[in-house]
Simulated assay, not measured.
Amino acid sequence: MEEQHIRLSSPEIGGLWSTYMQDSMTVCLLKYFLHHMQDNDIKPLLKKALNQTCFQLKQIEEIFLKEKIPIPDGFSDKDINLSAPPLFYDLFALTLLYSMSRMNMVNLSFITANVAREDVRIFFTNALKFSAEQYSEATSLMLEKGIYDRPPMIPYPSNVEYIEKQTYIFKSFGGKRPLNAIELTDIFFNVERNYFAVILCTGLLQVVKDKEITEYIKDGKQISEKQIKFINDLLMKEDLLGTVPLTMEVTKSTVSPFSDKFIVALFHSLNSIDITLIGHALSLSLRTDLATFYSKMIAEILLYAERGFTIMVNRKWLEQPPQSIDRQKLQQGHSN
């Protein structure tokens, strides 16, 4: 029996399209950091990540060509300036790999759970597997180099307990209950993620000349600093000490290694994952002070993301994702 061709579903088209855009951005970052990399321990991880990401781009292109779907423009060598001096020291590239692998595991797991066609399923399963391997390798190397910040430690529970009072969620007179392990997890990685963003913003503010984009980056840095301050203050009140990472300094370069289009698109991508992860933290928080803070931050980041969206649209930098047909418009045209 002749095999019937199965068309791609909307989650499959959307997943492949968004992954192509993200991977083309990742290739630019990896090429830039690899060009300047001096650390022989980090270099093999960057090369491995670059080869895999290029391979994934080629696979998506083959699927799109087969389905007669236009290949997105994405990002290319035009968006990076390899002649620019290094903007960050080598250890930041390792932190970048670690952060990218964590974000990719989140994004790819969502996509993988929504696709069905076998070739697409295999593609995303393999991409997710590679991200997990990359996370493991990057984490191991960060531990070896002493730059991995361990989350707060808590005593092991001695017995199983049940929640007996509503004050577990709501503020009780005279104070609040201690943070639980689930809340501490999201708190710690929120701080880690935002320290990474602050370093990124610090470097880019040295090199971006466009006034509108400079103000956009400054405001993004302030949002990250606000989250860090709230959580560190909270941890100090809980006698858990604040989270302060090892310094990974930005160089003194004032030459931008990336196009303005690339930089705003990178922030757009980071905003998206930040909203996703804060939303996850909100869904698991069982203390009103945390839930209130997360809700406010999601609203603030949504407004901030809208500014980035507007910048890209006004400058014709934002590619439109594949979309469904406007059938009402077709029907109106037919009736006329």
Rank of each mutant, 00 (worst) to 15 (best):
R121I: 08
K165C: 02
E161N: 14
E164P: 03
M312K: 01
N190Y: 05
S83G: 09
I213N: 01
S76A: 12
G14C: 06
G15D: 13
F173N: 15
F230S: 12
L286A: 12
S18A: 13
V106Q: 15
S256C: 05
E192T: 09
I111M: 15
P86V: 09
D39E: 07
F33N: 06
K211G: 03
M1G: 11
D326P: 12
F170A: 06
F262N: 12
N126G: 10
K218G: 02
N194T: 09
F188M: 07
S283E: 15
K171F: 08
A265Y: 05
S285M: 10
F173Q: 12
L96F: 03
L91A: 01
Q222I: 01
S253D: 10
L34P: 02
V264L: 09
I154K: 14
S9Q: 09
S158F: 13
E319S: 08
L284D: 15
L235V: 15
L8E: 09
T251R: 03
T276S: 14
Q52A: 15
M103L: 14
K165P: 00
T53S: 08
Y98H: 15
P72H: 14
R193F: 14
A84I: 05
K48R: 14
E212N: 03
E3V: 04
L240E: 08
S324V: 10
R7H: 13
H334N: 12
S76G: 09
T95L: 13
Y148C: 07
L270P: 13
D186V: 13
E3K: 01
F88E: 04
K68L: 05
G174Q: 01
N114C: 15
F173A: 13
D41W: 03
L29W: 03
G279H: 07
L302V: 05
V264P: 07
I223G: 00
I63M: 04
